[in-house]
Amino acid sequence: MDIFLQQIVNGLVQGSIYALVALGYTMVYGIMGLINFAHGEVVMIGTLTAITVAGSLLAAGMPPALAGLAALIVATLLCMALGWGLERIAYRPLRNAPRLTPLITAIGMSIILQNLAMILWGRNYQTFPPLFPKVNFELAGVHFTAVQVIIVLLSAATMLSLTLLVYRTKLGMAMRATAQNPAVAGLMGVNSNRVISAAFVIGSALAALAGIMVGAYYEIAHYQMGFMLGLKAFTAAVLGGIGNLLGAMAGGILLGLIEALGAGYIGDLTGGFLGSHYQDIFAFMVLIVVLMFRPSGLFGEKTGDRA
């Protein structure tokens, strides 16, 4: 039972991170139907920037809280600029191109960002500076750290504010309108270019936040880390029903839980035949099974066949 609860906690933490990244995918997809493959690299840039900023400020003698805040602000702003630039330079000229064209562009951007990061930060693993106090809590036999608590609370707050933004503000309304029908939204006076830019910028800010969380949680970062994380987060978005905000959050948390529980129990379930190094399989297995029965994801609307 203790293992079960412990894995639930681990899954929640990992799932919150997936959910934040998945939101970036799902917002962009919901509005313009594009899989932004470079989103995972935005997360990676966020992590590495935060490490550099926080690391150098700590070395300069700044208190950890201030250094962390500065790192958060710098990384978020940089990622927002990056997301805005990505859309402006790479994707906007391809609005009316054939469907697979932006996908290849996204893959190209992903390769570019990864190698830029490698040139800037090198091939080696970077260690995340000790920003958070190393405090361990124990509750009902379950151990968790301050970082884990911060991650879960901060993502919950972020997701709540995003939901409010999308469902309670004018910008959110414009975003939902553009997602439903860009042409009609345009006729109603929505500037679709601005809405799309906003989706990229907000998604990238979430990515930066998620990037810092990943860095703080695993205490290690690498120029290739964005790829698998992005892949999992995209899987989470599809699992929940891509284009659906609630789906992305639920899909992310669910994926984190499934992975944690799967890794914890697969050895027992298969009599030792499969070990925890099969963890990465769960995400995809669950995805395939869910999509077999619900082809538009768990929370996706059942889209009619459009001619």
């Binding site: 990465d280 995805l287 395939i288 077999m292």
Partner: peptide, 28 residues
């Protein structure tokens, strides 16, 4: 066979997942 109902990008992510599953099995 399980992916016949899926369209476009859903199919893309499932095939992607399948490719990863095959690779992970070969690795392990």
């Amino acid at each position: 066979s399980p992916t016949l109902k899926l369209r476009g990008d859903y199919l893309a992510i499932v095939t992607l997942g399948f490719g990863e599953i095959v690779r992970i099995f070969m690795n392990n």
